[in-house]
Amino acid sequence: MLQVKSGNTDQLGLLFERHHRALYSFFYRLTSNCEVSEDLVQNVFLRMLKYRNTYTGQGEFKTWMYHLARNVHADYYQKNKRQGFSSDFSHLENNLHNAYNPEEQTQKEEEMQYLQAALNRLEIEKREILILNRFQGLKYKDIAALYGCSEGAIKVRAFRAL
């Protein structure tokens, strides 16, 4: 990222290859919408380019990236608050189509849908914390830095989300 900051914008491609899946997964779990998630990933990289001068190199790049991602999502959420969220489970279904046993497949599918629905019912902040910790592999310490609060407070929120 420091290279991108110093003007070598081609290096952003490398960052994209490394992190776009994780970001996509983050947004997908928040929005349950493939197209929107792809747009939001694109927005994060666009902001990386625009606000590259704000990257100081202190702390992990991942933390900065999720900081941008949270802002992008917050903007999207504000814009679409009135329209409501449309869930798009086609992707999950696609992934599960390869399951071996049809019975098992149905059961798994139901479980996953149940889980996703449960996630969607959580408050945005709790959902974010849970996703960041469980799926994106961020430590409580990093999430605390992202939210500007103590590690203990994040632990409590993560537990309550569960």
């Binding site: 914008t9 491609g13 899946r21 996509y24 493939c34 792809e38 990933v41 666009l46």
Partner: peptide, 28 residues
């Protein structure tokens, strides 16, 4: 429950994402 969460399959982005990204990079 926590382990069940990990079993939730990782969603895969479509190839459009990469294509759009590189187009955006060139434009920028």
């Amino acid at each position: 429950f926590y382990h069940q969460l990990s079993a939730v399959p990782e969603p895969e982005p479509s190839p459009n994402l990469r294509q759009n990204f590189y187009r955006m990079l060139v434009q920028e």
